[in-house]
Simulated scan of single mutants.
Amino acid sequence: MKQKLLEFKLHIILVISLLCLGSVIYGLTQQAASATGEKFVIVVKPGMGANAIGNLLYEQGAIKNVFLFQMISKMQGMESSLQAGEYVLNQNMTIQQIVSILAKGETAYQQITIPEGYTVDQIAKLLQEKQLGSAANFKKAAQNFVPYTYMVNNNPNVVYKAEGYMFPNTYRISKGTSETEILSMMTVQFDKQFTENMRVRANEMNLSIKEIIILASLVEKEAQLPADRPIIAGVFLNRLKLEMPLQSCATIQYILGYPKAELSVQDTEISSPYNTYQHMGLPPGPIANPGIAAIKAVLYPEKTDYIYFVADKKGAHHFSKTYDEHLVAIEQVSK
């Protein structure tokens, strides 16, 4: 009798196991919801476990059975590796596909921050490092990308016409976004940030948007302290009025393609239209993509008689009205 009872219990366990296995197989092979193929977004918050995520998916209509979702997650060893993020799912997806996407962290968007003062080359490198695009394709697209008339620059020495107008910001980029679309996102943001009041102010200064951005890019690369920005902008504007060369070290570094702490005399003699030691006026185009603070510094510069500046070892600039004062400042910061 006991033997028969034991056999009966084993039979029940086997049936239940087969039913569970059958359910799991069904979940692995069948569609998660209706066959409409509709796309929708779910947000998995940090700390959510398989049960909470399963309930979320069920409420969104992504799956029909929370238990199956938990079972498959556990069987695949992914129960504790489902990652937080924002996901685009399709109602045609199987539970197995959904589990795999959540475990791999294949989010709908990837966040990327473009620092103030980054050049096209630096942005291209960053995008490739983040696996959001090809650096080569991005740079190629930036060469002639001019969606706004103020970006048009017919100077043949300008390598990237988009340089200066790719607004430094944090962007959410979805997978599959093209390099040109990313450029468009950044230039659209610039157009929004460069407000109508700023455009009016530029006109009052008798400067084009292009000239404002060229100057802002110089200020962005020269200034290390926020308080120095409007003073440096004032120095550059004073030099332009006095028809003095701008002599910006930042333009030499742009030519070199990397930041150099101390420039040599030979560096300042490099043959390039961007060499503001050798050529009067503004360089052909922006040397970086300035942030809003640098742009505002140019639009509202400090009114001074300074025409020289030099940075000390801590990054603070010392300003002078005469060349003799400048020489003394250089000697002081060199100590």
Rank of each mutant, 00 (worst) to 15 (best):
M166Q: 10
V200S: 15
L237T: 07
Q224F: 04
D191E: 08
N206H: 12
F167T: 07
Y165H: 01
M198T: 08
L225A: 13
P168I: 05
F167M: 10
V188G: 13
L246T: 09
I182Q: 03
P226S: 10
N155Y: 07
K241S: 15
R229I: 07
V158M: 04
F190P: 03
V159Q: 15
Q193G: 09
M205W: 13
M244N: 04
R172Q: 15
S174W: 11
L215A: 08
F194M: 01
K192N: 14
A216R: 08
Q247E: 14
V152D: 13
V188Q: 15
A227T: 10
G164P: 03
L225K: 14
A227D: 14
P230V: 06
S208Q: 08
G234I: 01
I232A: 08
A202T: 05
Q193I: 05
E163S: 08
T195E: 09
I173L: 11
G176P: 07
Y165F: 15
F194T: 03
V235T: 07
A233W: 05
N169C: 05
I214R: 00
E220S: 11
I214F: 02
Q247T: 06
T195K: 13
M205I: 10
V219G: 02
A202P: 03
V159S: 05
G176R: 02
N197P: 08
R229G: 00
I232P: 07
L207A: 09
D228E: 07
Y171F: 12
L218N: 00
T170V: 03
G234V: 02
D191M: 00
L242T: 06
N203L: 15
K221V: 03
A162W: 12
I173M: 08
P156C: 11
V158E: 06
I212M: 08
N154P: 00
T180R: 12
K221N: 01
K221M: 04
G176I: 01
S184F: 08
F194C: 07
M186Y: 06
P156T: 12
E211A: 08
N157A: 14
E222P: 00
E181I: 10
E220D: 10
P226H: 04
E220H: 11
N238K: 10
N197M: 14
K192R: 13
